[in-house]
Amino acid sequence: MSDGEVLDAVWLTLKLATVSTLILLLVATPIAWWLARTRSRLRASVAALVTLPLVLPPTVLGFYLLVALGPEGPLGRLTQALGLGVLSFTFAGLVLGSVIFSLPFAVQPIQRAFESMGARPMEVAATLGARPLDAFFSVALPYARPGLMTAGVLGFSHTVGEFGVVLMIGGNIPGETRVISTQIYGYVEAMQYNEAHWLAALMVVFSFAVLFLVSSIRSRAGRLL
């Protein structure tokens, strides 16, 4: 247990959160758009499905991921067929878990931003001759920027704070799946309280900074609207 170990965990956590957040924004934006605009009968089911990770204990997600990612699970078969191998105990597996786990935190702020815009700006853009995709990029996305930023910050920090899923599918490999939260857990269990304090304090400061950032984004957006 050394400084190198702590730095490894910090670096890995930041890498995991960054990669997961980028993927989250790419996945969440179209889902949020669809949820904000559709009148489909499927809307309620999709909305419930997307929100599910918010309610489920991480151990449930972790357990299902462990089974699904395994060599005989549906996802494991798929990844093996694609030549990616089995994703449990890998960084890619953690990214997948984090994206699923944080999806509601990214979808909801973006969806709310799109909803508050209403149908009018898109209609105006259409009458001015903009194609739907064009209007989406030049009207809707800029409008939803505060929502996107909130989604990014929340997705990032939620991934940093993730614990249960990582514990279930990570396997505690240094530099690959041992993140700050599982490292703190290991220190506490082994009664290495100095190291635990160090990392835990870092997490508290970080979380405060994130929440501060989110609330200032919100109040600035509120002034604009």
Partner: peptide
Amino acid sequence: RLVQGENIAQTLQFVASGNA
């Protein structure tokens, strides 16, 4: 190629589920 379970029960679970 080592993976660690938090306790021996989780270790068995890794092997029994075929992930290890």
